[in-house]
Structure formats: C-alpha cells, structure tokens
C-alpha cells in the first residue's frame, strides 16, 4: 500500500484511530496508538466525512458546499497520508 487513493475510494477511520475534540487546545485531534495529530477545521471536517459510505469525490463535493477554496488534490493527499499511516482505511464497495 503506497498511500495512493483514488476519487472512487470510500475511506473510513481505522478501528484503532479516534477523532475527538480537545477542550484544552480547542482543537480537533486524531488519536491513534502511535501518536496524536492536531487537525484544523477542514481536516476535522474531512475526517468526519470519512465514514465508509462516501467516495472521496463525494467528500470533496460536500466540503465545497461548506467551505470556499477546497483543493481536491489537497483533500486527496491528506487522506492518502492517513491511509499510509494506517489511521484510515479505504474500500471501493
């Protein structure tokens, strides 16, 4: 697995990872065995939309409804990074 993802993939958070709100830092964070990732609002929105039912294309569409200036490659790259870390899983079904 090279961490490549395509627009038709349906990503979801791996069982070992968890998205939480940190009231201390006032930030969303992703928790997993090997570490912690601080997310900005868009990052948290992306992770929140990765529920295994939406394709990446649909996630990008949904983000565009919420935010201006959503760059598709950036979203894809962000998800690919998490897949490479095994914090995110992808399926096509």
């Amino acid at each position: 697995m090279s961490g490549e993802v395509s627009l038709t993939n349906r990503p979801r958070l791996a069982q070992q990872a968890r998205l939480v709100w940190d009231p201390v830092r006032q930030r969303h964070v992703l928790l997993a065995p090997e570490g912690v990732l601080l997310l900005n609002d868009t990052g948290a929105a992306i992770v929140g939309l990765c529920d295994g039912s939406r394709t990446i294309a649909e996630i990008i569409e949904e983000l565009r409804r919420r935010y201006n200036r959503v760059v598709a490659e950036e979203v894809q790259h962000f998800i690919a990074r998490l897949v490479a870390k095994r914090w995110m899983e992808i399926g096509n079904a």
């Binding site: 201390v24 570490g35 912690v36």
Partner: peptide, 8 residues
C-alpha cells in the same frame, strides 16, 4: 494530565 493537554 488531561487539563495540561495529555491525550495519550
């Protein structure tokens, strides 16, 4: 620890 920011 949680108040200080510990998450793990």
């Amino acid at each position: 620890a949680r108040d200080l920011g510990v998450l793990q």
